[in-house]
């Protein structure tokens, strides 16, 4: 039996600013995980990943990150993704300091 495909989002770092971005449903890049398109189908996720990885003039290091998803939207399941979403824990820098 194939492993169950856990929900994922496509994420990367922006080329110019270097900050964390997520791929939205309409194929734009958002700074916020809440805007990310949650992918639940493996074949779809792989195709979206290939297409997103080709956008090298916009982003660097595109990959699929695990999330848990409910009505409130995607949440990181690993602490590394939680830090990427928020910023460092020693200063209020990065996304946690930016107004939505």
């Amino acid at each position: 039996m194939p492993a169950i495909f856990t929900p994922k989002v496509i994420t990367a770092n922006a080329l110019l600013e270097g900050d964390v971005v997520y791929l939205t449903q309409d194929d734009t890049w958002s700074r916020h995980l809440a805007d990310a398109d949650v992918l639940t189908d493996e074949a779809d996720a792989q195709i979206r990943l290939i297409d997103a990885s080709a956008r090298t003039s916009e982003v660097v290091g595109v990959y699929l990150a695990d999330v848990s998803a409910d009505a409130k939207g995607p949440k990181p399941t690993h602490f590394r993704e939680a830090f990427r979403m928020r910023g460092p824990s020693n200063y209020p820098h990065g996304k946690q300091s930016e107004a939505l």
Partner: peptide, 28 residues
């Protein structure tokens, strides 16, 4: 050239590393 799209990240990465520039979790 990287910003213009004339260098790919694979081409640019060794050049930026030679000049001390990394891409980390939240920023360069």
């Amino acid at each position: 050239r990287r910003i213009d799209g004339n260098l790919t990240e694979d081409e640019f990465k060794p050049l930026r590393l030679m000049n001390g520039l990394y891409l980390q979790l939240h920023a360069y």
